[in-house]
Design a protein around this nucleic acid. Structure first.
Lengths: 234, 234
DNA sequence: GCTTTCCGGAACCGATCCGTTCCGTATATG
DNA sequence: CATATACGGAACGGATCGGTTCCGGAAAGC
């Protein structure tokens, strides 16, 4: 607890990547552990999650976890923070020429699944967010902000193209999707599927941006055109 | 759970208000207890709330609570269910002549405060909602649905007046306010004030309903009075 | 005034969980 | 092969909490 731990924290000072892990902890198993933490977090929520569950699922010992993180809270904060990593790759930015096309292009099975998982994690953390500003910041930086930023970028591009009104409140509008998705998923417990999201885009987001509801069929009129992938109009 | 409880549930059969509380539990202190439960729930969340806290705050003994409710979970469900009572009074239905006026009229200090409290309770229950369908139903019936219905009624009236498009998806649009309020309050931890709500009404809800912003220069400065004959609806 | 009933308060029990400690072992170094 | 290190696993200690039991006393009924 004293000299022992302090000595452990002395870095080996040689950083040639692979050899000489010498003194300091190597963190090589962090990803598995953090992933397991997120998994349990999504399933059981913060209070329902136990450190043993995480250790077991990561096939690690509880001691290993406590050698690396000082407490359950810090582990969770780290796990949340690491969600941001898998994001903001440039191919996540579609460019179909129209804002509607871009927004719809974001709806893919992988995206739905990823978003659903994030929502579950968020749901499990809500009650804790209210009491731990540090965690609140982590959630905001890892989940809330990236998602809104993505929308904001697409919308700003549309503004620059002259496709939408320049005076629209993008800060507010970029949160419509996340808000209604979270509410539907966590509070109403209804499925967040492609149909729902397209309804939001056509029925809420685009109108808020002053984009006229193009084309005959209003969103409500089932586009009996083709139930699955819409015929790529271009 | 068996004969004992069944016998207890036999009512004294005399309902002259004050005398002869005979066999059944009298429930006279239920309101204080349920209110205390909601208070603690809002502050600490479901898992952070202890039965002792509720008892202490209601100036009751823990035993009294367990005489009336079989478990913490049932107590919480009852507490949530009783939130619905204070609602749906007819004076909660403003009638200003325009939808925007009605929606704005709903924003009052009391309303903001009441809504904030409900959000806190909801936030404390989110992780539990995911795992207890019974509780999920209670939350939906007591919080989610009443709020959306109120919006839906006002909007439907506006539709009947011809103020908004008849083909708008009121089911979706009536959830915009609650969704964005919950997200802002619980996830982003930003204040839900009058300014924010008016921004939602003018920037999101009314545009989604096809009501042109009455404010200055926008694509079509259509007055909200003439509903623009829908081109061949249906 | 006496009895009955219920309530508030406190002690109690069993289970759970965080965080720590200990140990046998697998792996990497030399 | 010998040594050192960290790891997985298990057991432990302390604290908390759900739920139960018990008791002194207050209030209602006779």
């Amino acid at each position: 607890m004293t000299q022992q731990e302090l000595a452990d924290d002395v870095v080996g000072a040689i950083d040639d990547g692979h050899v000489r892990l010498g003194r300091k902890r190597d963190h090589s198993r962090d990803p598995e552990i953090l992933d397991a933490a997120l998994e349990v977090l999504a399933e059981c929520g913060y209070d329902g999650m136990t450190v043993d569950m995480v250790a077991t699922r990561a096939k690690a010992g509880k001691a290993t976890l406590y050698r690396r993180w000082p407490s359950k809270a810090e582990l969770v904060i780290d796990a949340v923070a690491c969600m941001k990593a898998a994001h903001s790759s440039p191919d996540d930015l579609p460019d179909t020429g129209t804002l509607r096309g871009d927004l719809v292009a974001l709806i893919r099975p992988h995206s739905l699944e990823d978003s659903a998982r994030k929502m579950q994690v968020m749901g499990g953390l809500v009650s804790m967010i209210a009491r731990d500003p540090h965690l609140a910041e982590a959630v905001n930086a890892a989940i809330t902000e990236p998602r809104a930023r993505l929308n904001r970028i697409l919308m700003q591009r549309a503004v620059d193209r002259g496709e939408v009104r320049a005076d629209a409140d993008l800060d507010t509008i970029s949160h419509i999707g996340p808000s209604m998705t979270a509410y539907r998923s966590l509070m109403q417990r209804l499925p967040v599927d492609r149909e729902f999201l397209i309804g939001i885009i056509d029925g809420v987001v685009l109108p808020a941006l002053g984009v006229a509801p193009e084309r005959s069929g209003t969103p409500q009129e089932q586009s009996q055109r083709s139930p699955e992938g819409q015929p790529a109009r271009r």
